[in-house]
Simulated scan of single mutants.
Amino acid sequence: MLSSVKTHSSTEQIITCADDVYKDRESLSGTIEPVLIIPIGTFCLGTWQLQRRKWKLNLIAELQAKSNVPPVDLPLELSELEDLEFQRVKMTGSFDHSKEVFLGPRPLLVGGDVHEAGSGLISSGQSGYLVVTPFKLADRDLTVLVNRGWVPRKQKNPESRLEGQIEGLVEVTAVVRRGENRAPFMPNNTKGSPIFTFRDVPTMARMLGTAPVFLDATDTFPGGPQGGQTRVTMRNEHLSYMMTWYSLSLATSYLWYRRFIMGKALM
């Protein structure tokens, strides 16, 4: 509703602006070409949003396809991970629970999207933290970062979830993730703090003494954090943006046609 109000308001502003320009009869001949900038410019912006929408739809399809591919072994060459984001990998090793850090606050994701209702650990409206733990691989001298999953605020303290602090060798299936940049207006990570507001992989790796490799665990160990916290949906509002710009282009083109082609005064 708010989006349509904003769109209506923007349309009225541009039409009012065009109306003021068109009513300047004294400079009519020198105004024809400059006024065309409005419908042409908004048409170009609509076309740009059309291309962006195609790109986003392809990206979403690629993401979903990768998430459905059977897991592969974690590559020996870490450089190969650059092309494997959202690909599932499998590995065997052990967690170092003494060095876990937290990413959040975050809502619980179920099925790749924000969970709206439930009970217990997945109560509606709860926010919590993702538990990130160093994972030492059994087949090589390499330790990576694994997001074991989500816990509510009341279980951020590991003493409250000892059953889920699995010891010894375990097999983990996880999704390859890259680092992320801090979003506008998001607080920066506090140096030395175990709580991160965004996925700053290089800083986490230096702090915990691991390789700069970050993976989201897909499984949930009994009593442990809720796994599967990879968002597999993406915002795609390009259709509404495209319709807004094309509507503005159509409206201002009509005003231009009435003034300069038909020579009729605007009502």
Rank of each mutant, 00 (worst) to 15 (best):
S4E: 04
T7G: 06
E12P: 04
I14R: 08
I15M: 12
T16R: 15
C17H: 15
C17L: 15
D20Y: 13
D20L: 14
V21D: 14
Y22Q: 15
K23V: 07
D24P: 15
R25S: 09
E26C: 11
S27N: 14
S27E: 13
S27C: 14
S27W: 14
T31P: 14
T31V: 11
V35E: 12
I37C: 12
I37L: 15
I38Q: 10
I40Y: 15
G41T: 06
F43R: 08
F43A: 15
T47I: 11
W48C: 09
Q51L: 12
Q51M: 12
R52D: 06
K54P: 01
K54T: 09
L57S: 02
L59H: 14
L59S: 10
A61H: 13
N68D: 15
L74M: 07
E77H: 02
L78K: 04
E80R: 07
E80I: 01
L84K: 14
L84V: 02
F86P: 00
F86G: 00
V89E: 00
M91S: 02
M91G: 04
M91A: 05
T92C: 03
G93Q: 06
S94P: 01
H97M: 00
F102S: 05
P107K: 02
V114K: 01
V114G: 00
E116M: 04
S119W: 14
L121K: 11
I122M: 11
I122D: 13
I122Y: 10
G125M: 05
G125I: 10
G128R: 06
Y129D: 01
L130Y: 08
K136E: 10
R140F: 00
D141C: 04
V144D: 04
V146L: 08
R148T: 04
G149C: 06
G149R: 07
W150Q: 02
P152Q: 08
K154V: 14
Q155D: 10
E159A: 10
S160C: 13
S160T: 15
E163M: 12
E163G: 12
G164W: 09
Q165R: 09
I166C: 01
L169D: 05
L169I: 01
V176L: 09
R178E: 06
R178S: 05
G179D: 11
N181Y: 11
A183M: 06
M186A: 08
P187Q: 04
N189P: 07
T190M: 10
K191N: 06
S193Y: 09
M204S: 02
M204T: 03
R206D: 12
R206Q: 13
L208M: 05
G209F: 04
A211S: 07
D216H: 09
T218D: 09
D219W: 07
P222S: 05
P222R: 11
T230D: 02
T230L: 05
T230M: 07
T233G: 04
M243V: 08
W245H: 09
Y246P: 09
S247T: 14
S249N: 11
L250M: 12
Y254E: 07
R258N: 01
R259G: 08
R259D: 08
I261G: 00
K264A: 01
M267T: 09
